[in-house]
Write a protein that binds this DNA or RNA. Structure first.
Lengths: 209, 209
DNA sequence: AATTGTGAATTGATTCACAGCT
DNA sequence: AGCTGTGAATCAATTCACAATT
């Protein structure tokens, strides 16, 4: 009997980065890449790349390197990224609306199906500038269930973040990308990644003396 | 003679989070907080909070806890956040323009002085919807020097990211918040924090089976 | 000859456990 | 009595070094 191998969160994270690098190699029709070259592109050490991959199996050819297409597909499978993943966005204020207009998610295999906000005025207003449908918060439980949505982007003001997160989880959401600068309490089966833009900037400012 | 104490990057990062929590306590006129309570709000263990603070000195009172205002000021000093920090933004495409409209940075002690883009059309277009002045890329070296800007937010397309980063560094920028999904090569004295929205989402999708 | 895959060694971060103040 | 500050212990991640493979 073997112990359930514990894969570090950071390895998973780097897998996404490797895949992006592989995508670029593929665009340039490069078929083979060594751990050294790929690691360089991803900003890590070659041994780390190899260790990360080792959690999932053996994909390289000794003496040769990795097949770009094969490795990209494998990582895509691991990350569950080989099929389009539907996402909703909750909170269409400054940042939320900004993320709606930012098209970058679609290219990477995610589709924002709809956005939600608690304010009818904002729903009406944002609706005029976005192709993505925007609805009232009250509608998201039904929407999530009907469309089998598992991922949500949360960009509501701090005082509402926890209650909205709880409602999302109740409606069946399993993963939240949280832009609200606060710690969310969620059940263990729900995964939260936080992006805190102000903290990123603030953290940088330490390093400039 | 003592060795230069090496402070983990992660501790610095958490310092920013602690400070945000302290700000909220201050707003609620709470004067004292224990490591346990503050750690809970920040989503870490109390011992970790204490270890993080220990890198910079002793700020608590045994038996009592920390003085909220004092600790906030101290962390603010450490992070260099007690004075307004000027920032420029380079790249006013989808995401760049979005970040411009997002006001969240100002509240946290950062001021986006100006934005820059390489396309004259975009400069003209974004100028109509933003109060922040937007100029051509070619003008940033002079602007950086004149205004003593040390931090830049980079949101240009991947093919330009490296060359723009290099130019920013040459002009005197010391810290870059990089939204372009690529690894930047910069001299050791320059600090880069990367925010890769697609990677964050992709990483989440691993955890939903 | 080149390059992967991996156990062992190392380095780093977190947590424990308790001494030291107030 | 309560809570911080910190050396020691543990746990986790990274890197080394080299055997295995093409």
């Amino acid at each position: 009997m073997h112990t359930k191998l514990e894969i570090p969160k950071k390895s998973i994270y780097r897998l996404s980065i490797y895949q992006r690098c592989l995508d670029r190699l593929r665009e340039n029709e490069i078929e083979t890449v060594s751990s050294e070259a790929l690691a360089k592109a991803a900003g890590v050490k070659p041994t780390q790349l190899r260790k990360d991959l080792a959690y999932f199996g053996q994909f390289g050819t000794r003496g040769l390197g990795y097949n770009v297409g094969l490795l990209a597909d494998t990582i895509g499978d691991v990350l569950g990224r080989n099929h389009l993943q539907p996402v909703i966005l909750v909170g269409a204020g400054n940042l939320g609306a900004a993320l709606l207009h930012y098209g970058g998610f679609n290219k990477e295999g995610f589709e924002i199906l709809a956005a939600f906000d608690r304010s009818p005025e904002r729903v009406a207003h944002v609706a005029t500038t976005s192709q993505i449908p925007i609805k009232l918060d009250t509608e998201f439980p039904e929407f999530i269930q009907k469309n089998g949505v598992k991922m949500a982007i949360l960009a509501v003001p701090v005082p509402f973040a926890q209650q909205v997160a709880t409602a999302l989880v109740e409606a069946g959401i399993l993963a939240i990308l949280n832009f609200s600068p606060t710690i969310l309490e969620v059940p263990a089966h729900v995964q939260v990644n936080a992006v805190d833009l102000a903290v990123e900037l603030e953290n940088l400012s330490y390093f400039i003396r």
